[in-house]
Nucleic acid binder design. Structure first.
Lengths: 151, 151
DNA sequence: TTACCTGCAAAGGGTTTGCAGAGTC
DNA sequence: GACTCTGCAAACCCTTTGCAGGTAA
């Protein structure tokens, strides 16, 4: 499992390097450190969580740099952004990650992921019908989870 | 067409009245005026847009009341909230409105709606598989619209 | 009459911006 | 060496909150 993660991080680092070169962006240690941290995570995160995780690992960094780098990662499609129904944006890595949706419990705020193949068909449908080119997708169901339904 | 709107507004006003009574909320003129304004709209709106529209119609109201009333309308399911990729929340009426998704062009910011029947199947699927009870849904595709693809 | 609701203004929280110093190319 | 990037802090915008006066029940 660990070797898998290392391989993936190597790969996305390459992709990011290429992206930076092409866009005339500089290759700073902060940018690679943030990418690495994100790809070590298994789940969603907010900017604040990412920022604190890096501080905890004694990596000296500022919020502004995290915001700046996330923008580049979004542009390079290595990360996607989700705006759930709270005030802060949530992010996820994309490389080697399957397309999925989210269920959010409006009581306990839990976020549950689910895989779906039909989603892909819907996407193909709108691309065909509207001449729209889809870059990223957010499917979110809000409601009550199993545990909260019991109460 | 106009009679259709009037009928619908009468109907949702009744629904809202019942909701307010049941929840021991007061029936204030502001609340009904906001509901009416929303159901006169054809499309998405932000709090700020709604607020300004009401001011333009010489209805004296405050932002705080708009925020407060929107919460009640969400609770009564007469309005849904969408968090697109900008900072402000977007809202829509729900009554007599079909389930649909949104495509958002990341360049021109245009929001295009599309109907989809498959979405309902996905919803049924997660309800069955996860014991989750879905109350509302947001499906959003981000990408490039036909017009922006030309350039 | 008794809460609750409204309007106003200030506070709060996430994100962006401006600027000086550091680091990439 | 030029110019971008970083870190810090202040500014910004949307939303929430506190309080005094008004209003529905």
């Amino acid at each position: 499992m660990n070797t898998g993660i290392i391989d993936i991080i190597e790969k996305v680092t390459e992709i990011f390097k290429t992206f930076l070169k092409r866009g005339d962006y500089r290759q700073t240690p902060e940018r690679f450190a943030i990418l690495k941290e994100i790809y070590h995570k298994d789940s969603h995160f907010t900017i604040e969580e990412l920022y604190e995780d890096m501080l905890n690992k004694k990596f000296r960094i500022s919020r502004a740099t995290v915001y700046n780098t996330i923008k580049l990662l979004l542009k390079s499609n290595l990360v996607v952004k989700h705006q759930f129904d709270d005030n802060s944006a949530h992010f996820e890595k994309t490389f080697k990650t399957k397309q999925h949706g989210h269920m959010i419990c409006t009581i306990c705020k839990k976020v549950i992921e689910f895989q779906d193949t039909e989603l892909y068909h819907i996407q193909k449908g709108v691309e065909k019908n509207f001449g729209f080119e889809v870059h990223s997708t957010t499917l979110t169901f809000y409601g009550l989870c199993k545990d909260c339904l019991k109460n």
